[in-house]
């Protein structure tokens, strides 16, 4: 099953998006969050992103959704730290966070594969990536 990682500057946003998306399906979707800094400030932390990825990683693939600019930088850093074989199955998508997570979870519940989920999510991109 494809997994989802939510990266937000705020742990509350990350967990809220997870809560909302989980409401969409009774299936248990592999969904991990990385939000805020270690000491509870707003921000993102590449180490947390990396452990979130590792906690839900499978060869079926991972899609990562993020909120604002520097969350993307932390995410890219985290991916660079993964073994190459895992890097190849981890995709950052530039869909809006809440809508993207909801869509990802529903698509996964439909047993869609990683490649087609990425396509669906990329169609929602409104140009958020720098």
């Amino acid at each position: 099953m494809v997994g989802v990682v939510i990266v937000s500057h705020s742990l509350k946003i990350a967990e809220g998006a997870k809560e909302l998306a989980s409401q969409m399906t009774p299936d248990r979707i592999p969904l991990a969050v990385a939000g805020g800094t270690k000491d509870g400030r707003l921000g993102t932390d590449a180490e947390q992103v990396r452990s979130a990825i590792e906690s839900v990683y499978s060869d079926d693939g991972i899609v990562i959704l993020y909120d604002l600019g520097s969350a993307l930088m932390s995410t890219e850093l985290a991916i660079e730290e993964l073994p190459a074989i895992q890097q190849a199955r981890v995709a950052v998508v530039h869909a809006p966070l809440v809508e993207g997570v909801v869509t990802a979870v529903v698509e996964i519940s439909l047993n869609k594969n990683w490649e087609s989920i990425i396509v669906t999510l990329q169609e929602m991109d409104f140009g958020k990536a720098p």
């Binding site: 921000g43 590449a46 520097s70 930088m73 932390s74």
Partner: peptide, 15 residues
């Protein structure tokens, strides 16, 4: 820095 800054300067100065 990457693990403790939080803002954009973390990944940037970290890198």
């Amino acid at each position: 820095l990457v693990g403790n800054v939080g803002g954009a300067s973390g990944p940037l100065y970290g890198t």
